[in-house]
Design a protein around this nucleic acid. Structure first.
Lengths: 337, 337
DNA sequence: GTGAAAGCGCTAACAT
DNA sequence: ATGTTAGCGCTTTCAC
């Protein structure tokens, strides 16, 4: 069934059918009803590809992810919901970490005539920056996870600096002075902000960052376990608390401590960042800083549509606040045990 | 840049450009090189929408999910990877649980001329069955999560019955006789199979399913907590082990037990199903049955392509085996403590 | 081996 | 208010 068939069946021209399909004015109610009837009876469904070609508007939003992991589900969920509800379709792409794949996928979206791209940056590189800048000249792009400081491209980011500050202040207010830190991978610019927050708060309080207190991770639970091991083995003074860059590494750290017979939070306090689902069910329930990822996704897609509607919009960088979630993994040293 | 511009620039016809773009024969090497050069220089990228209309082949696969949750990430990851690598794009859709939304999304995929649909069924209803049957007459559909017994539609399913049997046998071999069960939600047909396995194994061993031993859940951690509470309060004889329908409810159950001061696995053993990421990091490390979801997704997309290539293929229902993962949450009653 | 031309199924400008 | 028609950017016969 195509528009031509419906036109013939309804005894009108294809232009008229097109008008009623698209709810456009200029058709007598009587005729409109008749056409609608025929459409319904024959279950006519317009070919969106043809429509796209003709109208030069695809009604498709492109999504570009590095590897597809649980971290993205809420954001992607928000994006899909918003688009589907608005009558937009979303084309999703993931690059399994390899950069060539990412470039290929970016081009695929471009060739698909998507109206805008939501780009989850993941690991930022110079090459990537160039490509993003280039594509953004043709198609509106909104960045997630990481912004490009020097470029005027809209982005929505969690307030990682502010969130880490909140975490650190909570630790400090709970009486902790010897605080260790599990770092994000080096390429995560946003992770660097958390590290800066850690350093700033330590400095502001005149707490010394002892040797061995800062250990790296790749955000995995396993790397958190390893980092905790390093903190203990490489510090001559045991910390009373450790702030992990995400909940996963916090969980890994706790696991290591337990295996060593060190109680959390009695002996050492551990704090995470993210508030992933398991955080509130882990034992001890994880004290962390919440990042509302559904909200982040929602804001990002809205920003993208703003940007599509008004390409000249000043590129806006939206910072989403994080909020402290106090649970059981941090001990208040001011209290008696 | 469109094909016409390239043709002019290269001094050939658009047909020739089309041939080289699509790596088709019938072009002198010399000319082919020349055209490629021009394409490269001007970064010409073919408009896939136009190609789709002209060739009547969209190169798009549709994905239909109920709500988008962490459970789907691995499967979706596998699907996207496979498609992207094959030069296919994937259009993703999620229905936030509401059925009207699902029907709308199904039509959206249809109108988008997708070449095949991967349908994560979630909750099965009569209405849904009809719609699936109908759409499958036009577009190849492969079902995930749940099959429709009476319809000849390909599906790939985890072997939920077999998996639960493995879990139960492990419990039995570990000396457990008083085994409780946390059920899946009623609408999950696959969950029912796990329940049947539980009943069958209990019966085969002449173990009594005591009152209160079977409690419902909605798969959430919270509902597992609640189910465990019910098991304890409604049974006059405490079980020595409980099999949960998924890892989430197993974790909820363990949390409840710990709060009650009941040790796992010393006092009560708890076993899950799924092997979600946190399972191996939870304390105690969760004994469970592994369902390789990446594999499931991979098989599903392969099956879909088979189906697309050969629509008359006898609809195949692929059952993916599950495997026992022994960790620390089940006690062997045959051992001394 | 190469090009001209006829669509693909729509939308949108232009007539009427 | 309705119809005619010219594209949209490609692929694909069919001639040459």
């Amino acid at each position: 069934m195509k528009i031509k068939d419906i036109a013939k069946l309804a005894g009108v021209s294809i232009a008229t059918v097109s008008r009623v399909v698209n709810d456009k004015p200029g058709v007598r109610d009587e005729v409109r009803e008749k056409v609608k009837e025929v459409i319904k009876e024959h279950e006519y469904k317009p070919n969106l590809i043809a429509r796209g070609l003709s109208s030069k508007k695809s009604n498709i939003i492109g999504l570009l992810l590095p590897k597809f992991t649980a971290y993205y589900t809420e954001q992607v969920d928000a994006i899909i919901n918003y688009c589907n509800q608005k009558g937009y379709r979303v084309m999703i792409t993931s690059s399994v970490g390899r950069f060539e794949g990412e470039l290929k996928n970016l081009n695929m979206l471009y060739k698909s005539q998507v109206e805008g791209i939501l780009y989850f940056v993941g690991k930022m590189t110079e090459e990537k920056k160039e490509n993003i800048e280039k594509i953004n000249k043709e198609i509106p792009v909104v960045l997630l996870d990481q912004a490009i400081e020097e470029l005027s491209i809209p982005a929505v980011l969690p307030d990682n600096y502010g969130g880490a500050v909140k975490a650190m202040n909570y630790l400090v207010n709970s009486g902790h002075k010897k605080i260790a830190f599990i770092k994000a991978p080096y390429y995560d610019l946003e992770g660097e902000k958390r590290y800066r927050a850690y350093q700033d708060i330590m400095k502001r309080n005149n707490f010394e960052i002892k040797e061995g207190y800062v250990q790296g991770s790749d955000y995995s639970i396993e790397s958190g376990y390893k980092a905790m091991e390093n903190i203990l083995s490489k510090s001559d003074q045991m910390p009373t608390a450790v702030l992990a860059s995400n909940d996963g590494t916090a969980i890994g750290a706790i696991n290591y401590l337990r295996e060593e017979g060190i109680e959390v939070p009695e002996d050492i306090s551990v704090m995470g960042i993210d508030d992933i689902e398991i955080a509130k069910h882990f034992i001890p329930k994880l004290t962390t800083v919440k990042q509302d990822l559904y909200y982040v996704g929602d804001e990002a897609i809205k920003l993208l549509f703003d940007y599509i509607d008004n390409k000249d919009l000043k590129a806006k960088k939206l910072i989403v606040e994080q909020e402290l979630v106090i649970r059981d993994s941090v001990r208040n040293l001011n209290d008696k045990l």
